[in-house]
Computed example of a mutant assay.
Amino acid sequence: MKTLHFANVYVKAWGSAGGKLESEGPIKELLDRAFHDAYCGTSSFERAERELIRSAVDSALRKAKLEPNDLDVIIAGDLMNQLSASHYFARDLHRPFIGMYAACATSSLILAQAAILVEKMHQQRVLAFTSSHTATAERQYRFPNEYGIQKKATTTSTASGAGAAIITAEPAQVRITHACIGEIVDWHFCDANDMGRAMVPAAYKTIKQVFADTGTDFSDYDGIYTGDLSALGFSFLCDLFIQDGYDLHNHLNDCGLMLYDRDKQDVFCGGSGCGCSMLYTFTKLMDDLTNGKANKIMVVATGALLSPVAVQQKESIPCIAHAVIYERAGEA
């Protein structure tokens, strides 16, 4: 699929909620809601993830001065089996719902789909949200944190957080101008404890596709942010582009590396999870756009489409990356 262009798609409002590590890192002043315990005041980690979603959605709706009944469609996804965090939260909103999954690339996928619905299907107000939680993801894909399994240095730490955005055709300060739906790419990486490097080829392919379709390169953006490639994967991606002769202009970064203070916070090789890029986008990046610190950014959320069963059967890890371009539209 070629890169899609949108003429009249805006981000009307957004909300964010983060866990303990996230609320102690670089974005702490930008979070709408911060939780300082893993349970977020609930009785289980799964309910905690739904509380993160509830807080982010509530913030977005309040900022937009909307009620759930004002929404035409909800699009959401998460990392839990059968998208259970999204489904269990959305059941109480009583609005048309679309569930989507692209692992940690879910954030850009749901926002691209929301933009398509607004521009092509004439939906007036679309709510997009996604989330992740370190405790729910770890015990689903690897081992519960409570087991105390020693982790490899290449491991990333799943972000505990949620982000929500209301996408409309009503003029606002931030526009969605383009989206690129990525291909599944598999360079035959097999280590589930090093998913950052596995996702690099997908990010590389999607960014080059956007460049080819739009006639742009790194110099045309204030920042291009991958989702969660880890410190190792991010270096790998930089090397690929440098070998191609690109000048990065210091405009390439990774949300998982920016979400935390890695000198002070123990997150191994960086942050991950579909809440990672969503949370950083709808705190720091939206703040930069609305305050005029940036005019044009690209977020390339990356996802490793593995399952525990496939890993146990010695399968490789197919990966995907979806891109969304945001631009400052001025005062609403």
Rank of each mutant, 00 (worst) to 15 (best):
H5D: 06
A17F: 00
A231W: 01
N193F: 06
I325Y: 02
V210S: 07
T168K: 04
R262Y: 01
H249K: 15
C276S: 11
G273H: 03
S132E: 12
I116C: 14
A85P: 00
F234M: 14
C255Q: 07
T177E: 06
G233N: 11
M298F: 10
V57M: 04
I320P: 00
T302P: 03
T302Y: 02
K314F: 02
E51G: 01
T206I: 09
R197V: 13
N8L: 03
H94E: 12
L248C: 05
G77R: 09
S277P: 04
P308Q: 10
P201L: 07
I242K: 14
T158R: 05
V185D: 07
G227C: 04
A128L: 03
W187K: 14
A329Y: 04
I176W: 09
T130A: 07
L240K: 15
P171Y: 04
G15F: 00
F218Q: 09
L21F: 10
Q124R: 15
L252K: 07
A321C: 09
E146S: 14
G41Y: 01
Y204V: 03
A112T: 10
N8T: 11
A7W: 02
G163R: 05
D191A: 08
I149Q: 14
D247E: 12
C319T: 15
G256V: 07
K293T: 06
Q312S: 12
K314R: 13
V57K: 06
R139V: 07
A310V: 03
C276F: 01
G270V: 11
A301S: 15
A153N: 09
E49V: 13
D70T: 03
K296Y: 03
H178R: 09
A114N: 01
K20D: 14
K284T: 14
S230E: 08
V210M: 11
A60G: 11
E331N: 12
R62D: 13
A34C: 11
D220L: 03
S23F: 01
D254F: 07
F97Y: 15
C269Q: 12
L93E: 07
V324K: 07
R62G: 11
T168C: 10
D247W: 00
D72C: 05
L240A: 10
G256I: 09
A329L: 04
E138C: 13
S84V: 11
T226N: 05
F218L: 10
L127H: 05
Q150E: 13
C180F: 07
M286F: 10
I53G: 06
G273R: 05
